[in-house]
Design a protein around this nucleic acid. Sequence first.
DNA 1: TCAGCTATGACACGTCGTGTCATCACTATC
DNA 2: GATAGTGATGACACGACGTGTCATAGCTGA
Lengths: 192, 192
Amino acid sequence: MGRWQPGARERLEQAALDLFLEQGFTETTVPQITARAGLTTRTFFRHFADKREVLFAGEESVPERVARFMAEAPPSLGPMELISENLAPAAAEIFEGRSLDYLLRRRAAIDAEPALHERELRKFSLMSQALEQGFRARGVDELTAQLAAEVAVTTLRIAVTRWLNQHGDPGLPATIDQTLAAMRHLTNTPSA
Amino acid sequence: MGRWQPGARERLEQAALDLFLEQGFTETTVPQITARAGLTTRTFFRHFADKREVLFAGEESVPERVARFMAEAPPSLGPMELISENLAPAAAEIFEGRSLDYLLRRRAAIDAEPALHERELRKFSLMSQALEQGFRARGVDELTAQLAAEVAVTTLRIAVTRWLNQHGDPGLPATIDQTLAAMRHLTNTPSA
DNA sequence: TCAGCTATGACACGTCGTGTCATCACTATC
DNA sequence: GATAGTGATGACACGACGTGTCATAGCTGA
C-alpha cells in the first residue's frame, strides 16, 4: 500500500489532523502520521515543508487570488468601500469546499498548539501584504494601504473566529458585516 | 572562561545577533553562538527556550505591564480615547533602554528570517490579548474589546516599522500620532 | 516492448531541544 | 576560616525534525 496509491497528500492531512486532536501536536511524530497514511517519513516532507504545514496546505494561492480580486474591482472604490463590498465574497471563496466540521476540528488543533497559532498568524500576515500591494496598485498611499490591509485582515480574522465559535450560526457574511460595523463604530467614537 | 562569568545571557544575545547578521539565522548553529559567548550548548537552552527566543528575551513582561497600565487609567475613557492618550507613553516604556542602533540591527535580523518574523507576530498577538483583557475589565463588550486591541497593536506595529525605516527621524510619539490619525481618516471615510 | 518521468522507499546525516547527573563557584552560617 | 547549601554550568546521551542522495517502482507515450 502507499506507493502510487492516489491521494497521498489527502491521506496525510487526514491522519495528521486526527492524530493532532487525539494526542496533541507535539506528541505526534511524523513517523506516526506517515504510518497511519501508509507512507514513509521522507514522503511526508516531500509534500509538506514541515510538520505544521500539513494543516495549511492549499492556502498558498490566497495572496495571489486576493491580488487578482482587487485588480478587477472598480477603480473608483476607496479602500473602505472595497473592504465593505468585497470582504465577504472573498472570504466565501477562501472557505469554499471546506466543511464546517473540518474547519472546527482544524481550529481546535490550531488553538491547542502555539506553534500552529504562529503559523496561522503568518498566513494572515501574507494576506495582509497581498492586500497592501493591491491597495498600492490602486493608487492608495503607503500608510493608508498598510492600515487598510490590516483592517481588512483583522476584521476577517475576528469575524471568522466569532463565526466558528458560534458553529456557523449567523452566516459568515452577516458576521463580517457585524464586525465591520463594530469597527466603524469604534473608530468613529469621538476621542478626548 | 564562561563559568560564573557574569552576563552570560547578554553575551549570548550579543553573539547571536552578530552571527545572525553575519551569516543568517538558519546558517548559524547554537554551538557557534555559545562558542563565541564562551559557553556550552546546554547553557544556551537554559537561558532561552529556543534559538529564536534569544532575540525576544525580556519582553515577556509586556503583557502584564499593559494590563497594569490599563487598570490605572481613568475609567471614564473610552477605548479609542485610551489608545490615543496612552499608546505613545506605553510604547516609550517598552523601548526604554534599547538603543536605536540595536533596534535597527534586530529589525534587520528579523526581517531576513520568516521564523523570526513569526515569533514577532506572536509577540504582538500576546500584546493584543492582554489589551483585550484590559478593555474587557473596563466593561467594554467582547467584540469591541477585540477590535480595539487589534487597532491599538496594529497602529503601534505600523508606527514602529515606519519609525525604524526612517531611522527614528520624527520621534516615535509623533509617528504614532500620524498613524492613528491616518487610521481615523481611513475608517471615517464614508463608504458606498 | 522500451524509454522517460515522477513519486516513493531507504539510508545517512546534521541540527534542535531535553533529560540527567556531576561539578564548580558563590554565600551564609557557625 | 571551615563547611554545608544553593544555583548556574559542563558533559553526555538521546529522540525528533528536516535534508541530501540514490535506488526503485509505477505510470505514460511512442
